[in-house]
């Protein structure tokens, strides 16, 4: 990158070779600063940096700071240093571990199902000769719709009185009565019901990413496999899957993070209930903050959650990431 430096010198040179007037000194200095790539870049990033420092970094510091205090949202005067008390309370609480378990279960199931389903659908669409664009467009819809609207629709579908799902299952004869499967009001089904909605909502993300990956693979590859008489299954698992590994690693880690952070859909569908059976960490933190106004305790859970998620995401990425020693063809 000698180019910008060259330009810089050229401009400085031209400024100095001009008529040396005293009052234009500041001006020319100013002008040469405006020619300097890094100066301008830093000046242009400053507003965004300040904004992010205020609304991203400062809140992150504040949440850690608050987690060491007892602090009631309604009465800021109640702030009182508590040391690690909030953390001790969280770690000793049954509800917290239940939420951790649900979050892990939700994330694991959702990401695994979405990957298997998404990969299958992507392979399927990749083989389509016609209609690919239509299917692609339809798959984009769930990615764009507000999760809360999707959740409202699903809540309506799940209803045991007027929901279409149970009536359909009843008509086929899979259940004895439309109210036999209380999706959202029984502790056994609430979390799986939320998982189904999340799978519906975000499998297209995996499908579209993997589809883009599949279509980027050289066509000669599957031709060669065909000539060699490689079976379809072997072609998929021994050739395509390993080649897509970098794409898969990134897509799965992103989905993992987003699935763990899910709030909207679960909050609308079940509100974490019944009896906390579908409570995940996001809903627990929200409830502790909004219902109980307990800033300190919710901050402590949030810190544990955030750090845990970062570690988990990093570990999963390191595992899934292709090793440098010949993962790439």
């Amino acid at each position: 990158m000698t180019y910008p430096i060259l330009m810089h010198h050229l401009h400085n040179g031209s400024v100095q070779s001009g008529q040396p007037r005293r009052d234009s000194h500041v001006r020319s200095r100013m002008r040469s600063m405006l020619q300097d790539r890094n100066f301008v870049a830093i000046a242009m990033s400053c507003p965004a940096l300040v904004y992010l420092a205020l609304f991203l970094l400062f809140p992150l510091i504040l949440v850690i700071y608050n987690s060491f205090y007892h602090y009631d949202l309604i009465d800021p005067g109640s702030r009182q240093f508590d040391g690690l008390d909030n953390y001790v309370r969280a770690i000793g609480s049954h509800r917290f571990w239940m939420a951790v378990g649900n979050s892990l279960l939700f994330t694991a199931v959702v990401v695994c199902v979405e990957f298997v389903l998404g990969f299958a659908v992507a392979l399927f669409i990749d083989r389509l000769k016609r209609g690919r664009e239509i299917v692609r467009t339809i798959l984009l819809l769930p990615l764009m719709i507000a999760p809360i609207i999707a959740a409202v629709a699903w809540r309506y579908i799940y209803s045991s009185e007027f929901g279409i799902l149970n009536w359909a299952l009843y008509q086929i004869g899979l259940i004895d009565s439309p109210s036999a499967l209380p999706w959202l009001s029984s502790p056994a089904f609430a979390l799986p019901a939320a998982m189904i909605v999340d799978i519906w909502l975000t499998t297209p993300f995996i499908v579209l990413i993997l589809l883009a990956g599949l279509q980027a693979l050289p066509k000669s590859l599957s031709d060669a496999a065909k000539i060699d008489g490689t079976s379809l299954v072997r072609e998929i698992f021994l050739i395509k899957l390993p080649l897509l590994r970098p794409v898969i690693a990134v897509a799965l880690v992103m989905r993992l993070i987003d699935a763990a952070r899910t709030f909207d859909a679960i909050w609308i569908l079940t509100g974490g209930g019944p009896r906390f059976s579908s409570e995940v960490l996001s809903t627990q933190i929200y409830r502790t903050l909004a219902r109980y106004a307990d800033v300190g305790f919710s901050s402590a859970i949030a810190v544990l959650f955030t750090v845990g998620l970062m570690i988990l995401a990093l570990c999963v990425y390191l595992i899934l990431r292709p090793s440098d020693a010949g993962g790439r063809a």
Binding site: F55, P59, V295
Partner: peptide, 10 residues
């Protein structure tokens, strides 16, 4: 990476 709910508190 940071969950929105974590930022929501502060």
């Amino acid at each position: 990476v940071v969950p929105p709910v974590t930022l929501a508190i502060p």
